[in-house]
Write a protein that binds this DNA or RNA. Structure first.
Lengths: 223, 223
DNA sequence: CTTGTTATTATACATATGATTAATTTAACG
DNA sequence: CGTTAAATTAATCATATGTATAATAACAAG
């Protein structure tokens, strides 16, 4: 562990550790606000207020509101993509020819865990769902930048596991999958409405298992 | 077909046919704007401008901005739910014990057709996707009001077709399904990104078929 | 035509917002 | 301590927005 003096050497002068904290505090609160109200609905004043910080600080650190949103998304999105990447590495290392279920689980689990890691994790799920519903070109670029590489690796893994199914079909089904789990995670709390409350019997892990079962069967279906 | 004189008798005095048209023109333009920019992002001025109408007219006809949004959603949402209802009626009448594929197709086709019925149909799909990503209580009530009854009927039909699968599981999978097709329809134009352009070979009908295949397999999966 | 009701517009109001600038504080360093 | 650069704040700007009101236009009825 680095000593305090070493840390202060690495740090640029005039930039104390406290400021790094504020940067993250702003990001955390922005995450919550964007998730709850959407990009247009959230206001910089509100975000700054939640963070107990002057509004101009958001501009100082992140530039425009759009830049703040991007920073928000890239932070946790990058973490998520990285986690997925590692999961697939480990799986392929351990099992040369993994089952479809295992591949899907490697993909879904990080998002799942994030959702239940706390309010900000859940907020990020909502953020993703919103971003997917956004038709703007910029939103599309963001998503591609963060996720595309990882998704393509998983498509390849699925192709290996399902050699009799054309790659085009697998790609399409992978897109189905993204919609399914995103929507589902975001809507989970209200799923009871459809089940007349019978859903309470399912725990979080049960639900993940159900999702994997459902999606694996879809992946395996003869085209 | 009613004569012009008869029509003018049915109409309330002081409410000429032209005004009914404007009401719909506003709804059409609001639909496009809400779909493109979201509820907060769309502005009444912009909507009124597109409709070549004074902004105060939106208030005159619909009240608040939120009311306009609701009217927007209920109009086409009601049409959609009705279409689904009829489709299931006809299916059950024709085939007492229909296949899962037929049930799902009856559910999905109306939305599919709407998407390709023109710009406003496509906009409504985007609107739905946005509304689903919205955590507000009001958005939830809207969706439930429009869709819940219809969805529950389809769940029952699926339970009959899959007697060995518990109702809870079917309900959950039906929720999966909604997420899948909504995001997919909304994302369809950009699906090429994942397939390196190979998707062009699939026509609209092919894609619907692929979706039904995928979802049917998921529905049938042993839980 | 006159009247009363509805449809439509022109205009104004109050406010919330993102951006911006200048001033102030904080901390590292010589 | 004093200097310097970065971090943080206070205050202002210009504007876009939803709401609201009053005036006008269109139209049916008598």
């Amino acid at each position: 562990m680095a000593t305090a003096s070493k840390l202060s050497q690495n740090r640029k002068p005039g930039r104390p550790s406290k400021s790094e904290d504020l940067r993250d505090v702003i990001l955390d609160q922005a995450e919550l606000a964007f998730a709850e109200f959407g990009f247009e609905g959230a206001s910089l004043r509100d975000i700054a207020g939640r963070a107990n910080v002057n509004q101009a600080l958001t501009r100082y650190y992140f530039g425009s509101k759009a830049d703040l949103f991007d920073a928000c998304f890239l932070r946790r999105g990058g973490f998520l993509a990285g986690h997925r990447h590692v999961n697939l590495d480990r799986l392929l290392e351990k099992t040369p020819n993994p089952e479809v279920e295992d591949i899907l689980l490697a993909y879904l689990k990080p998002q799942w865990d994030m959702k239940y890691s706390g309010p900000n994790g859940a907020a990020f799920v909502a953020l993703q769902a919103r971003l997917h519903a956004e038709p703007e070109e910029h939103a599309l670029r963001l998503r591609r930048e963060v996720y595309d590489a990882s998704v393509k690796r998983y498509i390849s893994a699925l192709c290996d596991a399902l050699p009799h199914i054309p790659r085009d079909v697998i790609s399409t089904r992978m897109a189905f999958l993204v919609g399914t789990y995103l929507f589902m995670l975001n809507d989970l709390g209200r799923l009871d409405d459809l089940t007349d409350g019978h859903l309470n019997g399912f725990g979080k892990e049960d639900m993940l298992h159900q999702l994997v079962t459902f999606l694996s069967a879809g992946m395996r279906a003869a085209p």
